[in-house]
Simulated assay, not measured.
Amino acid sequence: MDSTTGSMWTTFIMFGAIILIFYFLIIRPQKKRDKETQAMIDSLKKGDKVITIGGIHGTVVAVKEKTVVLKVDDNARIEFLKTAVSTVVNKDAVKSAPSKKKEAEKKAEAIEETKPEEAVESKEEK
């Protein structure tokens, strides 16, 4: 009887551990993403540039209770559910973050600056 009771407790402990792992690896991060998405939807305002879940880029023209009107071209306006907005494109964040191309150019310049010095040193050694 002791071994049966012991194996039953081991099984309960394993199930508990699996439930904890699922909570911390799946459920908790998903709740965090849901809160961030809801905060983004609640903070939509006129003039924001957004991308919908369908990949349509537009500028918010009007915000209603459950929908948002996007200007996608000069004379084209489309009304979407707020939940259809995937991301808000923030110009300030794009400007402040250095682009990968600029970073590559800076690295190339740094390499070019060090190469002439090495070339001069190697010529002097000869």
Rank of each mutant, 00 (worst) to 15 (best):
S3E: 12
T5G: 11
T5C: 12
T5R: 06
T5V: 14
G6M: 11
G6N: 14
S7E: 14
S7N: 14
S7Q: 15
M8I: 15
W9C: 11
T11I: 08
T11N: 05
M14V: 11
G16I: 02
A17Y: 02
A17E: 01
I18M: 15
I19A: 09
I21D: 03
F22Q: 01
F22P: 07
Y23L: 05
F24S: 13
L25E: 04
P29R: 02
Q30V: 09
Q30T: 10
K31T: 05
K32P: 03
K32Q: 13
R33F: 07
R33E: 04
D34F: 01
D34Y: 01
K35M: 02
Q38T: 09
A39S: 14
M40Y: 00
D42L: 04
D42R: 02
D42Q: 06
S43D: 14
S43P: 12
S43H: 08
L44C: 05
L44W: 06
K46P: 04
K46I: 15
D48I: 05
D48V: 04
K49Y: 09
T52M: 03
T52Q: 02
G54E: 07
G54K: 09
I56D: 06
I56W: 04
H57W: 12
G58T: 00
V60G: 03
K64H: 12
E65L: 02
T67P: 00
T67F: 04
V69A: 01
K71C: 00
K71D: 00
V72I: 13
D73K: 11
A76V: 15
R77A: 10
R77W: 01
I78D: 02
I78S: 00
I78Q: 06
E79V: 05
E79Y: 03
F80I: 05
F80H: 07
L81S: 11
K82P: 00
K82E: 01
T83H: 09
T83L: 06
A84C: 06
A84G: 03
V88S: 03
N90Q: 09
N90L: 13
K91R: 11
A93L: 10
S96P: 01
S99K: 00
K100P: 11
K102M: 08
K102V: 09
E105L: 13
K106Y: 06
K106F: 09
K106V: 09
K107V: 07
E109C: 01
E109I: 07
A110F: 10
A110K: 14
I111R: 10
I111D: 08
E112P: 00
E113N: 10
T114G: 09
T114P: 00
K115V: 08
P116M: 03
P116F: 07
E117T: 08
V120K: 10
V120F: 06
E121P: 00
E124G: 01
E124W: 12
K126C: 02
K126S: 10
